[in-house]
Amino acid sequence: MTPMQILFLITGVVILFSAVMAVSARKMIHSALWFVLALLGVAVVFAMLEASFFAVVQVLIYVGAIAILIIFGVMLTRRALEDNGKHINRATITTTVIVIFVFAGLIYSLRLWVPLLATTTPLSSDHLDVGSLGLAFTDPRQFSLPFEITSVLLLAALIGAIYIAYERKDEKK
């Protein structure tokens, strides 16, 4: 095994473990912190794929903004730092069995899917350039319209979120 593969395996184990912990941790704030670790692991995977821009954006947006937003959200709830009791109920076992079957089925049906089996070609150096992404954003024949629509989407998200958050606050008064 090359050092890269070993590193990838370690990262994968860290991501999976912290993802499981994020779901199963007793305290909500612990879940949030495990989630941050999983996000950092994904950033490492991006870095190993030489997608520098996405690695940094992953840390900047997900760890720097979304995780903090989630933690702020957790702190708005009533029992952030307390143990919330058992996470397992009667449906858990049934659900687990169903999930395992569905997952196995997916794996089985995707096993022969061609794009999954194709080996990727290494990217050329001008694909790694962030500037070509920027050019594509403003080129009308490429992603110009999606770029502008992203802005509208962000605007909608902002207005919607403020509307909901603010109304709720008025009710409390």
């Binding site: 903004a65 702020f72 403020i162």
Partner: peptide, 13 residues
């Protein structure tokens, strides 16, 4: 806090 976080997130993106 949550509102500031949201506005920050949107402008960061």
């Amino acid at each position: 806090y949550y509102i500031y976080g949201l506005v920050f997130l949107v402008f960061d993106v």
